[in-house]
Design a binder for these strands. Structure first.
Length: 737
DNA sequence: AGCACGCCGACT
DNA sequence: GTCGGCGTGCTC
């Protein structure tokens, strides 16, 4: 007689506990009950997909309380042991329910219980009828004709190939509707030979790059901070490190920021390597995401490039993790499980005993701090690759100067001179829309969002008012709703307004606006960049979208219209962000043979931080900020966690946090080692119709903070006040918004 | 979270 | 007379 076995299951629910079940009917072989497989179970009145954590022979429940699992979904774990462990670590470190962690670690379709092996890629091919048509068919539909010819030549095309060939998906649909194209399944690409991963020869390294590469060790955990200015050749180091790892028969994981995953980046990897590469980014459909996930989990793909959530991709033969632009805020998830993919990369690399490379021109303060304390090996690239010289940065004091739409005469003169030399200009304005404020000149009424404590941004293309925090939109009004005056003024500067103004100033020069609105249409960004590559004089007006990753060799002037907003920001990381952004944007200038120039307009040119950044560079600037952090007892010198709570009725959230503080102080009275602050309103108190507050806990020792949070969460979950609010812990918060 | 139950207000 | 508002309780 076999001992009864119980299944301990992680359920996607905010409850901080696991649930025990009886094995499903027709008891599976014990070997089938591997941790990490999915199980379909009854849960309350619903049926959910959970993940098996472990099996056990005892349970705290009465036999009658147990229900039976309905079915095992997988034969092999969707979360192999290392990832299951990582999820447990995340749940413990970030104080987030394990079931939700496990569920964020899985692609959406697996969450819903779909099979983990989609068995090949969905592709489109011509039907027999279509193959009989002459090559000159579809004379009146050029898009369809192009697709038809491509399919004749190549047989089948997948989504990625359609994109690469710039074929329209509408054409696919049109031909499919005519019965000329059908959806087919292409078997997975066979694994590439590991002995020859290269498609193209690596570039020659300069001595500095070579020295950095020589430092890397591939057989053990070590964290390398690869610090190098834009254009200093970090990517080539990544490529050659990956090459080394591939030839050891292992896989590489590359994490990139959300807007850094450009076709150029992917193209560079694909040109270099002959192995299958899986790409995971937010633009994929659930189906494509699952496909990419399966490709890496099966070991077919040898390189994974992805944004934040790619840190949870199973890699049976992981050999290296690279985090590019490691300072980028998008690596920290800002809702649900508030994890930092960069920090998880470190945990994962250490557990798997493989190297981790953190690359950046402007490392995060905590990363620099780690490097300074020898926890990371610091590799520096100081030279720009090729002949490009570092840009010269000039501060332009605009106090008392006449400004036209934010531009000083000197700045306009700079732009004009650059265009006259037949060079290109990048105008950086970190705010999309036309104007950030609509105000009534007669009574002072300001157009605000009904759901947030925010002003509505005026957009002109097309005209409307838009809340950038909750996406609420309203028609653009001409009359004040309070006093019925028609004197409504659009105050402040956004990209649309600058574009219009510059168009008037430089009527014969093409102006390209690049922000989330102008690039919403697919390939719009690629088209503009293609134009820009041709090198004719033009002006690019854009937000931080322009700051990342794009190679703009003909841009020789970067104009930063307003550097003050970041400098004066009250947020913990405001100045750090400003510095990083300025340096990143500046990196766009002068990448080819021509020297670049960066001009920064400011009312605070003599601000010590600004001076430091411009005259002595990011390192000195960052060290100064670190000194300030140490004085003010902030990370990375002390450890911070926020207890966030929000509710429709503000008092619910405040009462909850007040109680939380009381409980916390009972567990751990305030002291120099541990202090409390709050409940405080969030920087934007009301957002999306909810009032948001936070309790800050600041500790000298990570261990104390962690112990407190753990015990506090247990109590809070049982507390009736917690049911009236949405609450979550944010360990190592990025910002206080 | 999701779902059901339960008890009070303005509607066909 | 009901539809539906959200307070409360529960999930192996």
């Amino acid at each position: 007689m076999s001992v009864p076995v119980y299944l301990r299951v992680a359920i996607p629910s905010p409850l901080r506990r696991t649930f025990d079940y009886l094995p499903p009917q027709s008891p599976p072989a014990a070997a089938a009950l591997q941790p990490g497989i999915r199980v379909r179970v009854p849960f309350g009145r619903q049926e959910v997909v959970g993940v098996l954590l472990e099996t056990g022979t005892h349970t705290d429940l009465e036999p009658g309380q147990l229900r039976q699992a309905l079915a095992l979904v997988d034969d092999t774990p969707v979360l192999p042991p290392d990832l299951l462990q990582l999820c447990r670590w995340v749940s413990d470190y970030y104080q987030h329910p394990l079931g939700e962690v496990v569920s964020t670690a899985l692609p959406a379709l697996l969450r819903k219980g779909e099979a983990a092996d989609p068995g090949g890629e969905t592709v489109w091919g011509l039907t027999a009828e279509a193959r009989g048509l002459p090559e000159t068919a579809f004379k009146r539909a050029p898009k369809q004709a192009a697709l038809f010819r491509a399919l004749l030549a190549r047989g089948q095309l997948g989504r990625a190939e359609l994109e690469a060939l710039e074929l329209s998906r509408n054409a696919v649909k049109a031909l499919a509707d005519k019965g000329l194209v059908s959806e087919q399944t292409r078997p997975p690409t066979p694994p590439a030979r590991a002995d020859d991963p290269l498609r193209e020869a690596p570039l020659a390294l300069n001595p500095e790059q070579q020295a950095a590469l020589d430092q890397l060790r591939y057989q053990a955990f070590n964290t390398y901070l690869l610090e190098g200015a834009t254009g200093s050749g970090k990517t080539e180091i990544y490529l050659q490190a990956i090459q080394a790892v591939l030839s050891l028969g292992r896989q590489a994981l590359v994490l990139v920021p959300e807007i850094g995953l450009t076709p150029q980046t992917i193209g560079r990897f694909e040109r270099r390597f002959a192995v299958a590469i899986a790409v995971l980014h937010s633009g994929l459909t659930d189906r494509e995401r699952l496909q990419a996930w399966c490709d890496t989990a099966s070991g077919r793909a040898r390189i994974v490039i992805g944004t934040r959530s790619a840190i949870f991709t199973p890699l049976p033969e992981a050999g290296i993790i690279i985090v590019d632009e490691e300072h980028d805020p998008s690596f920290k998830q800002q809702d649900g499980v508030r994890y930092s993919a960069r920090d998880l990369a470190s945990v994962r690399a250490s557990r798997q005993d493989i190297p981790l490379i953190l690359g950046s021109a402007t490392p995060a303060l905590e990363t620099l701090h780690n490097a300074m304390h020898q926890r990371f090996q610091h590799l520096r690239l100081t030279r720009r690759a090729g002949s490009a010289r570092a840009p010269q940065i000039a501060l332009l004091d605009i106090r008392r100067l006449p400004l036209q739409e934010g531009f000083s005469p000197a700045m306009l003169a700079e732009i004009e001179a650059t265009l006259a030399r037949r060079e290109q200009v990048l105008v950086f304005i970190n705010r999309r829309g036309f104007a950030p404020t609509l105000i009534c000149h007669d009574c002072g009424w300001v157009a605000g969002c009904n759901h947030c404590d925010a002003r509505l941004t005026v957009h002109q293309y097309p005209p409307h008012l838009h809340c950038h925090h909750c996406d609420h939109q309203r028609p653009l009004i001409q009359q004040c709703p309070q006093c019925f005056s028609r004197q409504l003024q659009q105050v402040g500067l956004g990209t649309e307004r600058s574009e219009l103004f510059l168009q008037q100033c430089f009527a014969t020069t093409p102006i390209h606006r690049i922000d989330r609105d102008s690039t919403r249409r697919k390939n719009a960004l690629a088209k503009v960049l293609e134009d820009v590559q041709r090198g004719d004089p033009c002006i690019l007006v854009g937000t931080q979208m322009l700051a990342k990753g794009h190679h703009l060799p003909r841009v020789t002037l970067v104009a930063i219209v307003d550097a003050d907003s970041g400098l004066l920001s009250t947020d913990l990381r405001g100045p750090e962000r400003m510095g990083q952004l300025l340096i990143q944007v500046a990196g766009r200038a002068g990448r080819a043979e021509r020297p670049g120039r960066v001009v920064i307009q400011s009312h605070h040119c003599d601000h010590p931080l600004m001076q430091l950044l411009v005259t002595r560079g990011y390192q000195a600037f960052a060290r100064q900020l670190l000194a300030q952090r140490q004085l003010s007892g902030m990370p990375p010198y002390r450890y911070l966690a926020l207890l966030r709570a929000e509710s429709k009725r503000p008092e619910n959230a405040i009462d909850f946090l007040t109680e939380a503080r009381r409980l916390a102080q009972q567990l751990q009275p305030a002291s120099p080692q541990l202090h409390y602050l709050g409940p405080l309103p969030a920087l934007m108190e009301k957002r999306n119709g909810r009032f948001r507050y936070q309790l800050h806990v600041n500790a000298a020792a990570r261990r104390d903070l962690h112990r407190l949070l753990q015990r506090l969460c247990r109590q809070l979950e049982a507390n009736p006040l917690s049911r009236r609010v949405r609450w979550a812990v944010d360990v190592d918060p990025q910002d206080m918004t």
